[in-house]
């Protein structure tokens, strides 16, 4: 039953793909030229009077070219898609892990101490809704480095879900398990690592998963601002080049990498999950 359900779902998904790509392809055909085009006309998009969204066939062709040599580097404005994505992933991971380094211990503190929770909560509530990009000018001024500023923006946007989820997970550890730690005379450090951390780990991982999703959303916008390298810069650069095929191709690549990042953390979450 399940197998046939999967099979049916695959068929439906495939049909949808054919219909969507087919109609996209069909609606965006270049009109046939009635006479031979000049070199200038070819460059400006053939005989069409209006700019067209490039059809899927063109994008697949571009994707094939780009992906068969993803790491070429031909100067500051011509790098392979692989290099651009690697820059973005690198910034996201650095910002994300720095945030985890701060958020998880602070979340522990807030979760374990009602006093610290009450004391820090107003700051968290004010800082959390700020769009991470709003920090960018201040970050650029203080850090004076666009690369580090982008990482800072990732840091500040990934910190909140991890912080709040850690605090929530830690404060909701079952009283029974804390009592087990107490009756076995565990020190506070041992209790934190042997009981509270494994008990709260699934909640913490959920926070990390939300964080990396947000970080990946934000990096594109951040790189459009700071420029230089990265997939966000690449998208904006290709828009300036009026190369819509490249824009659409990189949109798909952003989705693909975002999915992979999420899958990695989902696998980590499965690893620490437990059944009560």
């Amino acid at each position: 039953m399940l197998k046939s359900l999967n099979f049916k779902a695959t068929i439906v998904a495939f049909l949808l793909l054919v219909v969507l790509l087919g109609s996209w392809e069909w609606m965006n055909q270049k009109p046939q030229a009635t006479q031979a085009l000049s070199e200038y006309e070819l460059l400006m998009g053939g005989a069409s009077q209006q700019a067209q969204v490039p059809p899927p066939s063109e994008i697949i062709k571009l994707a094939y070219e780009e992906l068969s040599n993803p790491f070429y580097d031909a100067g500051p404005n011509d790098k392979g898609i692989g290099i651009q994505l690697a820059y973005s992933v690198y910034r996201v991971l650095v910002g994300f892990f720095l945030a985890a380094l701060v958020a998880i211990p602070v979340g522990f503190l807030i979760g374990m101490s009602p006093l610290m929770y009450k004391a820090l909560n107003p700051y968290i509530q004010v800082l959390r809704p700020i769009s991470p990009l709003a920090w960018m000018p201040l970050a650029l001024f203080i850090i004076k480095d666009s690369e580090l500023s982008a990482i800072f923006v990732i840091f500040i946007c990934s910190i909140w879900p991890m912080l709040l989820n850690t605090a929530f997970g830690v404060s909701n550890v079952r009283k029974d398990w804390i009592n087990v730690a107490k009756t076995h005379q565990l020190s506070p450090i041992q209790t934190a690592f042997q009981v509270i951390l494994p008990a709260a780990a699934p909640t913490i991982l959920t926070g990390m998963r939300i964080s990396i999703g947000i970080a990946w959303l934000v990096i594109v916008a951040a790189e459009m601002l700071v420029g230089g390298t990265g997939i966000g810069y690449y998208v904006w650069n290709e828009w300036n080049n009026l190369d819509l095929a490249s824009v659409i191709f990189s949109i798909f690549m952003i989705g693909l990498i975002g999915m992979i990042l999420d899958m990695i953390l989902a696998a980590a979450a499965r690893f620490v999950s437990y059944q009560e």
Binding site: W177, N179, T183, Q190, Q194, Q275
Partner: peptide
């Protein structure tokens, strides 16, 4: 204190540990 062991009504085993690990946890403590 470990001189006073407790058996709870709801067992209070640590669910992320196996049977053996739950005992090892106590013995090591």
């Amino acid at each position: 204190s470990l001189e006073r062991g407790v058996i709870f009504q709801n067992y209070s085993l640590l669910p992320w540990k196996t049977t053996l690990e739950n005992i090892v946890f106590a013995v090591r403590a």
